[in-house]
Structures are given as C-alpha cells and as structure tokens.
Amino acid sequence: MNGGEYADADESQLRWAGLMDETVAETFSAMLGLGCTPSQAAGAPPSPASLRKISARIEFSGAVQGSCAVAMSNADALKIAEIFLSGTADDAMAADTVGELCNVLAGSWKRRLKPPASGAGLSVPAISRHDDAADSSVRQTYNCDGAQLVVRLIVQQMQEE
C-alpha cells in the first residue's frame, strides 16, 4: 500500500487492502501490460467528462458476505477499453470494461483469502451509471497509465481459517 485511504483501518482492513493492491497490479500487468498503483485522487477540479461515472458491483456469498465495486469516469473507462482492444471503443465497451474489471478483481482478490473465504461465491456484475459512495471497509484509488479507478470492498462477514 502506498498512499492509500486507510484512515482508521483495522488489521483486517489493512490486509484486505494489501491483497487488493496485489490483485490490481497483477490484473493490469497480465491483461494490459500496464502498471497500476494506489494513488490519492488528483487535486485538480474534475472535468465534466470525468464526472460521468460508470460503476460495477459484485456481491460475495457464502463464506464472505459483502461486495466489491469498481468505479471509473466514462472517459477513463473508454481509455482502458481502448488499451484492452488495441482499437477504438464505444460507451457500451466502456461499461463492459468496468464490469469485467470488477469481475476479475473480485475473483482474484477472494482467491487470495484463506479458506473457506477463498471459495466464496460471486454474483454477476451489476453496472450502473453512477458511483454509489456507500461506506466501505476498504476504498482505494488506483492510477493506471493516467486513468483512475476506485475500488471499494464492503465486508460484512468473513470466515477464514
């Protein structure tokens, strides 16, 4: 973790956040060949384009009760989609990108947990055109080749050995 947003985080939250940092780095390196590191949100005022958000949420079930959400601006989602595709992308592809990132990050993050939490179930991603800023156990902003994504974990219950 480097410069994350973990104020008042307890030991579990710090570990979950560290596992998410690893997960994000692995995902972007493997699938996009990009570095992706935790960062604070930029201090510049957001542009109108960056205010258009796309978010995706996946619910955990079984040994983990909670959710994983990924939010990006429409412009950043388009940018990542175009890197994924090595070509142009449209708004539908941008939404698909956020949903797929959420799916991969949720799956890879919970794989890093100890059993039985590592075998928790995942829902399909639910996509929305806003960022639901609910209270989170872990909230982290990542910078990936100039694009920013916010990952939030809500953990209500977890069973680990």
Binding site: M31, A81, F84, L85, S86, A92, M93, D96, T97, G99, E100
Partner: peptide, 11 residues
C-alpha cells in the same frame, strides 16, 4: 456474452 471479453480473448 461479453463482447469485450470475446475481443480480448481473440486478441
């Protein structure tokens, strides 16, 4: 069912 994933896998 994801057009994006089809293109990523094809690539």
């Amino acid at each position: 069912d994801s057009a994006l994933m089809r293109r990523i896998v094809a690539k």
